[in-house]
Nucleic acid binder design. Structure first.
Lengths: 334, 334
DNA sequence: CTAGGTCATGTAACCGGTTACATCAAGCAC
DNA sequence: GTGCTTGATGTAACCGGTTACATGACCTAG
């Protein structure tokens, strides 16, 4: 960013009648510079409006003070929370965060490589890049994988498999549902895949057959609405719909009543993530709470050099509300 | 990102027995290099796993092929769409996008200055930085302001004032409401401020007194729920609630029925932005559609050097659905 | 008075690329 | 054979910082 010829350290040195080393020292508050000199330099800096070039500095220091985050897209609260978590750590260390979304970039791999060049560390969300690319990035620099796995790359995850299984068992054992269906595309992301696995494992454990193939759709609200209409169009609904995330579930919550189904009386719906709307929606959504910000924070710390295990698993919590069929709890609306 | 000593262009030159200039030419597909030499160099590159350093290149070229976007936070679809719009333009030009959220950074100004160093252009959302900082950034580089205004900085906006006014007049003239209240903090962002202005202008035009101070809250779903409870607790509701954005409105839509109010029979609710949920929610939300992706795309083009007017105003569209009291249109749910 | 030490500052190499210009060999015309 | 052109490649300066080491002024102890 240099249209109007920014002054360089050498301009300041000339202006103040000192050497570049002295200017550099002043900008670093080096105590070796004597007061009058420091003042003269500071004046020159102010007069010319000098700000050291981050690129020059990065080249010299071999360090950028930047952390990169690679996400599929920026939509949705999941990623916003992840970033916020990382941000808390980054702020502490004077590091700035750069985010790229791969979702709609045909050249995602290139974009990420370019990002990797400019950062001291990288947080990569599972499902954004081919495994071998993650491995190769990790060979060249510090990379932490979030909600994903790749050979030899430290990863931070939640145990979505176990959580989905617990959720599904709640539906089976507590409510007695035996016709259940999973909504979401397991191949879309490792997170979804794990959730689907947990779902199937629970069914298998209770000797139940799946009510149908997973309904393969995106993870957004609109897909939830589409799913609802599709299920309706194809005839009878299962007893319970296990959605891959809350947004999908919220889309269903909003759409199913209009099609004549009562939730949870006619069909139970569950989500995943504990979205802000989950406890506001009606009925309130049964879901799984995940420490997403914590995930981001740990990943950031690791990416910035803190020692980290090969695999960190953070705990999840089943949040039982009403959409699964459980009675409304005592919870004062006002 | 250089833990495992990456090879530099000089390593390759030595390995291939040529000069750095030749290596540089090979990496640029310069036709002047003769085939056998090119091959020898390429082999050295592959053998050592060389990738040119983006920082070295940036320093030399005085260009980073990077576009920065400064947003308050990354939450919510508004910003996700803005980024997507920018991304389409960036992809075309082989530029990568870096996003920073200022929301929870006490050192936002520093973070943005650092970003500005590393980018060829900057898109700044209104309300993220003090005006004078935006002006000073614009002095040093190419800056486009989105949904904001600052002396001498090219801006792209939608006419939120006119849109809010049209929306409010619809509530007054078409539905006959005369007790209206605005939900949102006008000082929070220019966008909200303009919407509030439009709201007040409409009331003034019809000689109506405002039903109360704006209810000053954040722009998220949860705040909508809080607002609903607060209004309920303080006694009677106005006839119509004009929310600063859809998320706020969706929070109210989800909460008010539980408190015993029917929408729109007892109270009308409107939003702003045309969120994905707006047409799925029930009742379907009356709101204002904004070409957000277009906003992002234009801003990106401008920030990357395309000539741009001082002020570009993009059109909005009033989307009348049910939450304002209009009858359900013919719209087949399946 | 001098050797040695301390301190403020300067000099110049270095980080990893790009590129203007120099160099040198080969080909060609006379 | 000489001079000129053309083409492939090399040399070295430059981008904007940082910093190890050099320098030289001044102080102090012997």
């Amino acid at each position: 960013m240099t249209p109007s010829a920014r002054p360089t350290i050498r301009d300041i040195a000339r202006e103040a009648g000192v050497s570049v080393a002295t200017v550099s020292r002043v900008t670093h508050d080096d105590p070796r510079v004597v007061e009058p000199t420091k003042q003269r330099v500071q004046e020159a800096i102010d007069r010319l409006g000098y700000r050291p070039s981050a690129i020059g500095r990065a080249l010299s220091l071999q360090r950028t003070s930047t952390l990169g985050i690679v996400l599929p897209g920026l939509g949705g609260p999941y990623f916003a929370q992840l970033i916020e978590g990382a941000e808390t750590v980054a702020v502490e260390r004077g590091v700035v965060i750069n985010v790229v979304g791969t979702h709609l970039r045909p050249d995602a791999v290139d974009a990420v490589r370019q990002l990797a060049e400019r950062t001291d560390g990288l947080i990569v969300a599972g499902g954004t890049l081919p495994d071998e690319e993650v491995v190769s990035l990790a060979k060249a620099g510090r990379v932490i994988l979030v909600a994903g796995e790749a050979e030899g790359v430290p990863a931070i995850v939640t145990d979505g498999r176990a959580a989905a299984s617990a959720l599904t068992l709640h539906l089976i054992d507590h409510h007695g549902y035996r016709r259940l269906r999973f909504i979401g595309e397991p191949h879309g992301s490792p997170d979804t895949a794990w959730r689907y696995e947990g779902f199937r494992a629970a069914l298998a454990e209770r000797g139940i057959e799946e009510a149908g193939e997973p309904l393969r759709l995106g993870l957004d609200v609109r897909s939830g609405a589409v799913a609802a209409r599709e299920l309706h169009a194809h005839g009878e609904l299962p007893e319970a719909l296990v959605c891959a995330n809350d947004e999908l579930a919220i889309g269903m919550l909003a759409t199913l009543p209009g099609l004549g189904y009562r939730i949870p009386a006619d069909v139970a719906v569950t989500g995943f993530d504990d979205h802000a709307l989950a406890e506001i929606a009606s009925p309130r959504l049964t879901t799984v709470h995940q420490p997403i910000a914590e995930l981001g924070a740990r990943a950031a710390a690791g990416a910035l050099g803190e020692p980290i295990d090969d695999l960190t698993t953070l705990p999840t919590e089943l949040v039982v509300r009403e959409s699964c069929g459980c009675a409304e709890e005592a919870d004062p609306p006002t």
